[in-house]
C-alpha cells in the first residue's frame, strides 16, 4: 500500500545572482512499513527533501516550484497551514540531525514533549505527563520521571537523541523522517540509537524515510535505497542489489571510497567535487525543458566512464526492472 508518493517535485533557491534548482524532478513512492534511505553527499539535497515534505523550508529563499506530495490521498502542497499543522508531528514527524539545536534550551524536555502531546491529542496535562514518562521509558532513558525536569544541556548527546525520538514517536506517526539521526553521535551510541529506532519502528508499524550520507548505516537498516546527486536521483534499488551490484558510476565510486573493516583495499577517491553554485541546474529549465535535455549528465565531469554523449545529452532515469532505476547512458536499452 502506498503511503506517500512524490511526483515531479522541484525546489528552487533564489539568490541575488541566480536562481538554481537544488531538487529537480523528484519522483518517489513509499509503501507502508518500508524503510527507504536517501543517500548522498552534503549539498545533494537530502535534507531539503525532508523539509519540503513537511513544508518547513526557509522561504524565502527556498520555495517549491512544481510537483505534488501525495500523502494518504491528499496533496500536501494544496493544504492550508492550519491543516498542515495537524499533520506535522502527528502523522509525519521528524528526527532532526542535531539534537542540541532541535531542542529548545530554555524549556525542560518534559515541557517540550508535553506541548507536542497537548497540541495533537485531546488529553489532560496530567495524562500527557504520564504518557511522556512512558515514552521516555520506551526509548530507554533511565530515571524517566526525573529526566522530564531536565534541560537539554543536562543530557548527553545520546540521551538528547533519545528525547528527540520519544518526541517524534509521541503521536504514533505514520511516517517518520529521520534526517541523519546519528551523525552527531558516537559509534556505540549510534548503534544503540539505530537499534532503538528499528525496534520502535517495527512495534509502531511506522514507515521511515532515512536520510544519511553513511552507506554503512544504510546497508544495515534500509530496505530500499535512493542515491541523490546534485538534486537528482541517479539510482534507486533495493539494498541487496545496490550493495552487491551498484549500477551507476557514482554509486560505484562512492562505495570505492569507503574503507571496510578487515578488508584491506586501495581507496579510490572521486576526483572533483559536487557541482556548486552556477554549476547546478538553473531555474530557467523549468520554462524551457529542452535546455535541460542538452545539459548533459551532472556526474559526467567526475565520471571515469563518461562518453561524449554524457556531456551533450541528459540521461533519463532508465528502469532496469521493476525495482531498479539508473540515470546513466551506460544502461540505455
Amino acid at each position: 500500500m502506498t503511503l506517500l508518493s512524490i511526483k515531479n517535485l522541484s525546489c528552487s533557491i533564489t539568490s541575488k545572482k541566480e536562481k538554481i534548482l537544488p531538487l529537480y524532478d523528484i519522483n518517489l513512492t513509499l509503501s507502508k512499513n518500508e524503510t527507504l534511505a536517501i543517500v548522498g553527499e552534503s549539498g545533494s539535497g537530502k535534507s531539503l527533501l525532508c523539509l519540503s515534505l513537511l513544508q518547513i523550508l526557509p522561504s524565502p529563499p527556498i520555495s517549491i516550484e512544481t510537483g505534488e506530495i501525495i500523502f494518504k490521498g491528499q496533496n500536501l502542497l494544496n493544504l492550508k497551514d492550519k491543516e498542515l499543522q495537524k499533520i506535522r508531528g502527528k502523522e509525519i514527524s521528524m528526527i532532526f540531525q542535531e539534537p542540541m539545536t532541535a531542542l529548545n534550551p530554555v524549556f525542560t524536555i518534559g515541557e517540550q514533549i508535553v506541548e507536542m502531546l497537548l497540541t495533537h491529542e485531546n488529553i489532560s496535562k496530567k495524562d500527557a505527563l504520564d504518557k511522556a514518562e512512558y515514552l521516555f521509558e520506551r526509548v530507554k532513558i533511565p530515571f524517566a520521571k526525573k529526566r522530564l525536569e531536565a534541560y537539554p544541556h543536562e543530557l548527553s548527546g545520546g540521551m538528547r537523541q533519545r528525547v528527540m525520538i520519544a518526541m517524534a514517536l509521541s503521536c504514533n506517526p505514520l511516517l517518520l523522517l529521520a534526517d541523519e539521526p546519528t551523525t552527531a553521535l558516537d559509534l556505540t551510541t549510534q548503534a544503540e540509537i539505530l537499534t532503538l529506532i528499528k525496534e520502535l519502528k517495527e512495534a509502531y508499524e511506522t514507515t521511515m524515510l532515512l536520510v544519511s550520507h553513511d552507506l554503512g548505516l544504510v546497508a544495515q537498516y534500509a530496505d530500499n535505497i535512493a542515491v541523490l546527486y546534485a538534486g537528482e536521483f541517479v539510482e534507486k534499488a533495493p539494498a541487496r542489489e545496490l550493495f552487491s551490484a551498484p549500477k551507476h558510476p557514482y554509486t560505484q565510486a562512492l562505495l570505492a571510497t569507503i574503507p571496510i573493516l578487515d578488508k584491506p583495499k586501495n581507496l579510490t577517491a572521486i576526483k572533483g567535487h559536487i557541482p556548486q553554485g552556477n554549476e547546478r541546474l538553473s531555474a530557467d529549465i523549468l520554462k524551457s525543458p529542452e535546455l535541460y535535455l542538452q545539459r548533459g549528465c551532472n556526474f559526467a565531469p567526475r565520471c571515469t566512464y563518461a562518453l561524449k554523449k554524457c556531456f551533450d545529452e541528459t540521461p533519463p532515469l532508465f528502469s532496469l526492472n521493476a525495482q531498479e532505476q539508473v540515470r546513466c547512458w551506460l544502461h540505455e536499452k
Binding site: 559509534l187 556505540t188 552507506l215 554503512g216 548505516l217 546497508a219 541487496r240 569507503i258
Partner: peptide, 22 residues
C-alpha cells in the same frame, strides 16, 4: 564491542533472516 558497532557498507544475506525473525 567497538568493532561490532562498525557498520560496513555491505549487504549481508543474514539481514533478511533477521528481518523475518523480528
Amino acid at each position: 564491542e567497538l568493532l561490532k558497532a562498525v557498520l560496513s557498507p555491505e549487504f549481508k544475506q543474514e539481514n533478511d533472516t533477521l528481518k523475518k525473525e523480528s
